[in-house]
Each structure stands twice: as structure tokens, then as C-alpha cells.
Write a protein that binds this DNA or RNA. Structure first.
Lengths: 181, 181
DNA sequence: CATTTTGTTCAAGTTTTTTTGAACAAAGTT
DNA sequence: AACTTTGTTCAAAAAAACTTGAACAAAATG
């Protein structure tokens, strides 16, 4: 082979395109490009990849990879894979759509939903304190609309998970739903 | 009342809080703050509001309101409301959760899903062109995973709409599903 | 048809988010 | 213990997204 060439460990055409799909998907759900790239490359690659391999093949900074993997771990979108003989952490992508979606919902969606409930209670208090006898009715009306939206969203989650393949899911009061589908 | 005071048409406490809920919701689905504010104020207010009233009460620029309303119209999240005697357009919020979600999916989600299909076909071609007999198998495997995710996402949509209240929804080949729930 | 009213457009300014890279910590080696 | 490897943190730089406001168009009015 020719002498010391710069040896950019370039990605093949299909890898680039497939990673692009994940970059778009990430952006769609509000995650930065670098996270799409990392998950995308792991998705393309047969073997587990180490931190360094991600940095080199994607040509992005260590900082981005470190933070990106942190988020992906939190979401349950990557798994640590032990490689004998190597001291480095190796990563593999989570391939179960159900688990990916579940992780995303639990991490990014549910918190907003829950904090939302408290916010609505606060708003109700504010409406009561407020004078304006006349407009109070409308305000409370809209508040109820909001509450009904919340409730429906919550009911939707377990159904989504079920359709995605047999889910156990958060729901304080409803009857058991270990394995619906 | 006191002489010409600056008269900031300030929002009441409960309005501010409720608008805040919409600002957060907007951000959650990747829409800018100003759009959350506009929809939020319309949601709080009993009467339809004009362009100018939105500018004044929210204290944001005409540009933001114009662009914000454009997006909200596109999403079907606001409706024009004719007010006799006034030449201005007046707006009211769409209050049906089903229609709101449907508008969002149709406008922001479906396009990505569809363009996605073509992208995957392109990737398949690239994988075939590519040499490397050995790795082709894995690549095609992952491509199939992606296709299955797509398919499941598409199946999910009508179900989501149905749960939200009896939907007619896009689906080329499946059997009739005018009113499921 | 000149003028006013109403709303849109878009380049420039501002703010927010993301990325970088150098300094740092933690743990393993020699 | 000194050194190396591996990965994290975080302030500063870069990029992206959002907002502003002045110039512009379109339509109604007088």
C-alpha cells in the first residue's frame, strides 16, 4: 500500500446515507445531529464500536461523542458490550423499536406530562384568586379542556407501547396490563 | 383614569401561566416560543383576536405574529373567524385535540415518513453496488429493520387517531377504517 | 387615483443550541 | 510512584434557530 497517507477512515456511501436517516430522525425528535450520527454508525456496524472508533470514523470531537453516548445510554438506545481483552467500553445499538420508543417517552415525554399536572393545578388557583367573576367561567372551561388533553395523552401511551409489542407501562390506577398484545 | 400612561396591555397571572404551558408544549414538538405564545393567548381568550391584538398583548413583533399564524394555519391549529364590521382577520384556536394532532402529524411527520421510504430504497441500491460481499448481508439486514420500523410507525398513526376520537386516516392498502372507535 | 389599513417578506440582529478542545479525573501499567 | 490509557467536563467558539423592524405588496376607502 502507498506510504503514510492521511487515511481518513471514511464512511462508505451506504453508511453515510443510513446515518443521514438517523440524523434526520434525531432532529425530528429534537436531538442534536451528533447523536443521530453516533447511533447511526452503531446501527450500520456489525461489531460493537469503542469510543475512539466513533471519534475517528465520524470525525467529531471527543466531547460530542462523550455527551452523545451519555444521552443515548440514558435513553436506553445503546448498550455496553463487553469485549474481552479491551479496556475500552464498546457500544451496540438497541434494536428493539419498543424499547427505543419506551426510553424516549420515559425520558423526554413523561416528565413534561407530570410537571404539567402540577402546573394546571397552579393555574386553577390563579384563576380563583383573580377577580373578574365574568371571565372566570371561560378560564375554568379552558383549563378543563387542557386537563382532558392530558388525560387522553396519558391513556394513549400504554396503547402505543402495546401496539409496538407487548408493553408494561406506567399508569397509576388502571387495571393490570402486563401483556396486552 | 390617570393621564396618558404607557398602558402595557399586560396579561393576567393565569393567562401568563397558561401561555407558558403552550410555550413548553410547542418547544416539546419543536415549534418556536412565539407560536406557543400565539396559540396560548388565543386559547385563553373568549373572543377571536386580530393580528394587531396579538402583537400588542404579547408584545412581539409583527413579523413573528405573521409567521407564527402562517404555521398555525398550516397545522390547522387556528381558524379564521369572520367578524362583521372589521376588515381584519380574526383568529380562534382549534380546540379539538384530534384535529390538532392530525394536523401536526400530516404536516410535520408524514412527509418525513414518506421521504424516508424513498431514501431506504436508495440505500438498498447503494448497498448492492458496493463491493464487499461479506458485509452486504449485515447491511441488508439492518435495512430491513429500518423498514419494519417504518411500517410499524405507519400502522400506529391510524390507531392513535382512532383513540383520539374516530379518525379517517391515510393508509393506502389496509381495509376500511372509517370509524374504529 | 392618492391614501390608509392590513398584513407579508426578508436581511440583519439576537438568542439559543451544539460542537470543540484543552484541562482534568480515574483507573490501569510498568 | 510515574506514566499511560480512557473518558468526562466545561468554557469558549461556531452554527443554527428565532425575532425584529423596515420596506414592500395588496386591497379597501375616500
Amino acid at each position: 500500500m502507498p506510504a503514510t497517507q492521511s487515511d481518513t477512515p471514511t464512511l462508505s456511501a451506504w453508511e453515510t446515507s443510513m446515518i443521514d436517516v438517523f440524523v434526520r430522525a434525531a432532529s425530528l425528535i429534537g436531538l442534536p445531529r451528533s447523536i443521530g450520527e453516533i447511533y447511526g454508525l452503531l446501527f450500520c456496524t456489525p461489531q460493537a464500536l469503542s469510543f475512539d472508533e466513533l471519534v475517528e470514523r465520524l470525525q467529531i470531537s471527543k466531547g460530542s461523542v462523550s455527551q452523545g453516548l451519555k444521552v443515548l445510554r440514558q435513553l436506553g438506545a445503546v448498550k455496553l458490550h463487553y469485549v474481552p481483552g479491551s479496556r475500552r467500553d464498546h457500544y451496540q445499538p438497541e434494536l428493539s423499536m419498543k424499547r427505543l420508543v419506551s426510553g424516549f417517552i420515559k425520558d423526554q415525554f413523561e416528565p413534561h406530562l407530570l410537571s404539567g399536572s402540577q402546573r394546571l393545578d397552579n393555574i386553577e388557583a390563579l384563576i380563583q384568586e383573580e377577580g373578574d367573576e365574568a371571565s372566570r367561567g371561560h378560564a375554568l372551561d379552558r383549563l378543563e379542556t387542557l386537563r382532558s388533553w392530558q388525560k387522553r395523552t396519558r391513556k394513549l401511551m400504554p396503547i402505543v407501547m402495546a401496539v409496538l409489542g407487548g408493553a408494561k407501562f406506567f399508569d397509576k390506577e388502571s387495571t393490570d396490563q402486563e401483556t396486552i398484545i
